[in-house]
Design a protein around this nucleic acid. Structure first.
Length: 206
DNA sequence: TTGAGGATTCTC
DNA sequence: AGAATCCTCAAA
């Protein structure tokens, strides 16, 4: 019997030590894993690039909120917004750059009972983790996990590969929900994946 | 001390 | 289209 389930190998530090426009598409088809069995395949991401990027939290330099983003690559930057939602990023680049990749959507893969329990109002599975706030809620990510090391798995969250190739032909387009640098094509998602978040409704100009 | 705005989601 | 809901940061 030679066939076996492919091993889940944690992504190494140097996977993250590049520009977020490189790391972001490379993260498509990787798997976000919690130590309680919850896991989901990453199907939508966005890049944020520090002082090169007016839309990034880190654009104007480090603050108390963004300290993690300026730290070592491979850690989790978790932010709070709109008074109720958490967002999760993989820090990338070198220390001091403030670069990261926002995890925007997962295709739930394991621990579905726990994921559904974390999203009790949701009826369809494709709505469980389709959006940064939904993803964080589904996976139990809050500010308590800000700074967690995805490489050493020091706090029960990591990103692994199951051997699936990177998405060969991702959809590329503008980022969602930002007011500046809207023209940067720094969003990538797996084509036709039901879990990809959708812009609510484009506001008509004028 | 104040206030505007926010890497969103849900409901009406 | 509007509400919910509160933290962050710059400016006064």
């Amino acid at each position: 019997m030679t066939s076996a389930l492919p091993a889940w190998t944690t992504l190494p530090r140097d996977f993250y030590q590049h520009h977020p426009t490189v790391v972001a598409p490379a993260l498509l088809n990787k798997i976000l894993v919690r130590d309680d069995g919850r896991a989901g395949r990453i199907v939508e991401v966005e890049a944020y690039a520090g002082d090169q990027d007016p839309a990034a939290h880190s654009f104007k330099g480090m603050t108390a909120r963004t300290a993690t983003m300026f730290g070592e690559a491979g850690h989790l930057y978790v932010y709070f917004t709109y008074g109720m939602h958490w967002g999760a990023n993989a820090v990338c680049g070198e220390v001091g750059q403030g670069w990261g990749v926002l995890l925007r959507a997962l295709a739930p893969l394991a621990g579905l009972d726990r994921i559904r329990a974390a999203r009790p109002a949701i009826r369809r599975d494709r709505d469980l983790a389709s959006g940064p706030g939904r993803l964080s809620q589904a996976m139990g990510i809050t500010g308590a996990l800000d700074g967690a090391d995805l490489v050493t798995d020091d706090r029960g969250i990591r990103i692994v590969s199951d051997g699936t190739a990177p998405c060969p032909d991702p959809v590329i387009g503008p980022r969602i929900g930002i007011s500046r640098a809207q023209e940067f094509p720094w969003r990538w998602h797996v084509p036709d994946d039901a879990n990809v978040s959708v812009r609510p409704r484009r506001r008509l100009e004028r």
